[in-house]
Structures are given as structure tokens and as C-alpha cells.
Amino acid sequence: MGIVQPIATRRSATGILTGKLAVWWLIGSEIVIFGGLLASYIMMRLLHGDWANEAEHTNVVIGATNTFVLLTSSLFVVLSHYWAEKGDRDKAFKYMWLTILGGALFLCFKSYEWTHEIAQGYTISKSLFWSFYYVAAGIHGLHIIGGVVIMAFISFDLKKGKNMHRAELIGLYWHFVDIVWIFLFPLLYIAK
């Protein structure tokens, strides 16, 4: 019996492969989730000028370091996609794991940052600013965890030369997570 390719790589009723279309739809729904959250935050921030005093306590150095880490991991995942398309399994696998490392580093910095803030009394219930801060960064962090886990699974397929198209699919998701952080960083850390 011959190997049957998954429908995600065979069917393209819209001219876009089904698997890729599904990821675009997922990203579309994520735009509404994060967009709604950020729009609410901007609205409240404009209404409460005193939130600037609360934002003074966020750690810009860690926020900036995490921005650098995510931008770099975005480079790694697009390189993984590039080498997957070229059929170079080893390079695709290597860059996928460098991306995973970026995600793990991001989470380590975030854990350190949150531990420090909570120890200082800046908890989720301290004020509306901190509620937004923990919810927005927390949901984003959950997306990082999800992405890291999925990439770990995909990486072993890449190593075997199976389902190479998935490097692109997880890459799209990872770039979106990066874009969300690009907006979260100035909103939560820079605007004092």
C-alpha cells in the first residue's frame, strides 16, 4: 500500500493548501483575541493617566531582551522553513531547535520577571493595570508554550523528512506570536 499524503498537503480548493489555510484562519481568530484585549487596554490607558505610574515598575531591560529573543527566534524559524523547502533535514531540524531554545529563553526571562514583580507586591489583583499586564502577557506566554511544544513534535518529523510543510505552518504561527509581542512591548513597558 502506498503512502497517502495528508489532506493538508494535497487539497487546495482556494488555491492555498488546506493546512496553511487553517493556520491563516487560526491567526485571523487570534487577531480578534489579542486585538480586542489590546484595544481595551489602550482605551483604559487613555482614560486613566495614572497608569503611567504603575507602568514605571515594569522591567524594560527584560522586556527588551525578550523582544530581541523573539525577533531572533523568528529568524531561526524562517530559516528552518527555508531549509525544509530545500529538503535539508538536518538544517531544518537544527533551526527548529534554535527557535525552541528562543521560546524557552523567553519563558525563563518572563518567569524571573514575574517572580520579581510578584515578590514586590505587583500581583494580578493590585490594580487594573497589573490585571491587564498579567492577562495580556500571560495569554501571550501560553501561546509561546504551545508553540514550543508543537515545534518539538514537528522537529522530529523534519529530522525524518516527514511532513516538511509543517515547518512553514508552525513558522506562520510563531511569527504571529512575535508580532503580538512587538505591540505588547511598547504598550506595557515603554509607554510610561
Binding site: W24, W25, I27, G28, S29, I31, V32, G35, G36, L38, A39, I42, M43
Partner: peptide, 13 residues
Amino acid sequence: MLGSMFLACVLFY
């Protein structure tokens, strides 16, 4: 598709 999702957020705002 992505633009229409973004537009939904602007309308919400």
C-alpha cells in the same frame, strides 16, 4: 481575511 479581522477590532474600539 486578516485585514477584516483587524477591522473588526477597530470597529469594536
